[in-house]
Design a protein around this nucleic acid. Structure first.
Lengths: 138, 138
DNA sequence: ATTCCTGCAAATCATTTGCATTACC
DNA sequence: GGTAATGCAAATGATTTGCAGGAAT
């Protein structure tokens, strides 16, 4: 059950939090914005305010349940950290997102941080391109 | 002279545009936000509106004179494309920005885009960390 | 002259916050 | 029951846009 994850994070198990986590989990293959989550809540007939969605998403980020990404265009999108370590390719035409993992790049990043005397805390890598296969996703 | 750059880009040579380009060029070692440019204009006694700064910066971006970056925190920052190809390290404590160039990473990125059938248009790589040298820049 | 540009204020967009009310433990 | 969480509306912060007046070619 999801509640354990919430408790573990020191968050009270409330209906909005459970519902929001459910929605993110049932859409684990995409990257949802606060607005997306809110719309999905409405679609499911839940009475949860947009402000709460923003608050909860931020709490989940702090609790290391979600990771926030910016990609292009003002809005943040989120994905489950439990999905593991990966970076993204984004199609600039369709918005389609693909995931990849490249140890060589990661090793280089660690090396570069070290060269510059930085304690690496995180990095962000997004590849933008035009997908040659018309996946027309979403 | 700067005017040639503007003309080449199909932009009329106007005082705001020349002044803004001057400011960016004279601060080529940092990454300025629209607000930063605006403040610098005021400091230099120029009467140029913030809206114009935003408009001009966007035009320069479209004309491939500037590149826009997001880094952390809502605001966009800009830098001259003529500075060449590089990526960034950002100190999460001080905001200090360092630049690096790594052909191996770039080659990998090209390879990955190709594997996923993407025509690479661009990518964004930012390394976040805590600088061990207190550069206390800016 | 004509078309493009600028300044200003008002409009947007995404996100945040104050506060009274309500829901968990 | 007490504290933490939520909903709503209003506040923010960054950026954009409409429009009337001003410049550049």
């Amino acid at each position: 059950m999801d509640s354990s994850e919430l408790k573990k994070a020191g968050l009270k198990v409330t209906l909005p939090r459970v519902k929001i986590l459910e929605i993110i989990e049932s859409n684990a293959d995409w990257h949802m914005s606060a607005e997306d989550v809110y719309k999905e809540l409405l679609a499911r007939g839940e009475e949860i305010g947009l402000a709460t969605v923003y608050r909860v998403l931020t709490q989940f980020e702090t609790a290391d349940i979600l990771k926030r990404h910016q990609f292009e265009g003002g809005k943040s999108v989120f994905e489950l950290i439990s999905k593991g370590d990966h970076d993204h390719l984004v199609c600039v035409k369709t918005g389609q997102v693909e995931e990849f993992h490249d140890p060589i790049i990661q090793e280089r990043i660690a090396m570069i941080a070290d060269q510059f005397d930085f304690d690496l805390t995180d990095y962000s890598l997004v590849i933008y391109g035009i997908s040659r296969k018309a996946t027309g996703k979403r």
